[in-house]
Design a protein around this nucleic acid. Structure first.
Length: 413
RNA sequence: CGGGGUGUUGUGUAACGGUAGCACGAACGCUUUGGGAGCGUUUAGUCUGGGUUCGAAUCCCAGCACCCCGACCA
């Protein structure tokens, strides 16, 4: 991608309305744009990161047997009446009117859709277990959106639903999903600071697990047992003064962001929608369900919270919008030609390159932009390096700079 | 949803009730090219609707929007 053609604009000024580092950096670096409170456009750079995150998540969900589908965003209101959530969740539900009197719900999650859907597929114990998921925009009328991508009203979520013949099967699959989640967060670069956290089940079940990433920018609080390292959220802490696992009562209190959660829903949704199957014994039984969510935008924001410095973002290689940021430091024809050649060469090797081909930009501005954008590898071509048939190679977030011969470049990746 | 705050060019900000200014950006020209470079010219703004006043960005009322604290949060 030629930077001179990229649909973006960086900004030197701190955003007046940004209340978190990730919010400020993502806006200033041209990754996202705010349309209204809690609603954002993903600009090309941001969308590239988004798609990388999406790809990682999809990959792990498919590895554990998930089949991707796409359910509608527009839901018949009756399904929400049936489960009682039209009342229970009314504060966050977007209910819209059609032309007539008919009302619709903009989906904040899809139990109300996937359960009756599964009823058309699942009849026998032979049909179980089944796993489906989708990656799609959700709508929740949050009373107070905040911190950029960390809390929004419209957001992409991976929602995964599992269907089982019995509790033991759900229990074992639940552990499988938890493991997949750990892998996803590790791959996105926040594995070490993300804790599986015991939580209460809310409207779903007695217990659930949240995946909490430790950061000062977080709005949640987790308590980590100093002895066995079990993490629990504050509701559980209120109910259990000592660690539910090892009975120790010495906890470390940390701020955190919830980047994912998993629930055992049991028969909460299969009962109202009469989602049943005929078991081996010939009797009808309700299907046991689990559900598992990850917010993609929030995960992106969380990664920036965890990985930045005073100059800008430091993307993990796995989700960075480009692998290489190629900077051409002056407009002399021979330097330009050299940079173009390197650009073409890297592209040929399937390395994603953002090429700062802008003329009449001072070196300082190019460096500052590169730091702000946070692409993992920076390659500089200038009069100085060209004289040695070399380029300068630097990793974002590290100080070391080395000269590399142009013909040795591809060996670095 | 309760409480509070703020709305000024694209961005960040200034202006006692009396000429809407500054920096960045953008455009053009020239000069520059290793950490946001220089000179010159130009561009573009008082959220909306009422009211008070000789005169309103400024004061008052209403609306809208955004932000903050709290509550809420599968």
């Amino acid at each position: 991608m030629l930077q001179s053609k990229l649909f973006y604009k960086t900004n030197k000024n701190k955003s007046a309305n940004a209340d978190s580092v990730s919010h400020d950096l993502l806006i200033r670096a041209g990754y996202i744009d705010q349309l209204m409170a809690g609603v954002y456009t993903f600009l090309p750079l941001g969308f590239k990161v988004f798609k990388n995150v999406e790809h990682i998540i999809r990959d792990h969900m498919e590895q554990i047997g998930g089949q991707e589908l796409l359910m509608p965003v527009l839901h018949p209101k009756e399904n929400w009446v049936k489960t009682g959530r039209i009342e229970k969740e009314k504060e966050i539900l977007f209910v819209v009117k059609g032309n007539g009197e008919k009302e619709y719900v903009l989906g904040p999650t899809h139990e109300e859709i996937v359960s009756p859907l599964a009823r058309k597929i699942i009849f026998s114990y032979k049909d179980l277990p089944l796993y489906v998921f989708q990656i799609q925009e959700k709508f929740r009328d949050e009373l107070r959106p905040k911190s950029g991508l960390l809390r929004t009203r419209e957001f992409a979520m991976k929602d995964f639903y599992s269907f089982h013949a019995n509790q033991a099967d759900l229990d074992s699959y639940y552990a499988t999903v938890a493991k997949a989640y750990k892998n996803i967060f590790s791959e996105c670069g926040i594995g070490k600071i993300t804790y599986r956290t015991l939580a209460s089940g809310g409207s779903f079940s007695k217990y659930s697990d949240e995946f909490q990433m430790l950061t000062e920018a977080g709005e949640d609080t987790v308590f980590i047992c100093k002895k066995c390292k079990l993490a629990i959220n504050k509701e559980i802490k209120a109910e259990n003064p000592s660690c539910p696992e090892c009975k120790n009562s010495d906890f470390e209190e940390k701020k955190s962001i919830e980047v994912g959660n998993i629930f055992k829903m049991g028969t909460r949704y299969s009962l109202p929608f009469e989602l049943k199957f005929t078991d081996k014994d010939g009797h009808d039984k309700p299907v046991i369900m689990g559900c598992y969510g990850i917010g993609l935008g929030r995960l992106m924001g969380a990664v920036v919270e965890a990985s930045h410095d005073e100059k800008g973002i430091i993307w993990p290689k796995t989700i960075a919008p480009f692998s290489v940021h190629l900077l051409q430091l002056d407009g002399k024809p021979k330097i330009q030609a050299a940079a173009k050649k390197i650009y073409a060469q890297l592209q040929k090797e399937n390395i994603e390159v953002l090429y700062d081909d802008r003329q009449n930009k001072a070196a300082g501005e190019k460096f500052a932009d590169a730091d702000l954008l946070g692409i993992p590898y920076r390659i500089v071509v200038s009069e100085k390096t060209f004289a040695k048939n070399s380029v300068e190679f630097k990793e974002r977030g590290k100080a070391a700079i080395k000269l590399v011969k142009i013909n040795q470049l591809s060996k670095l990746f």
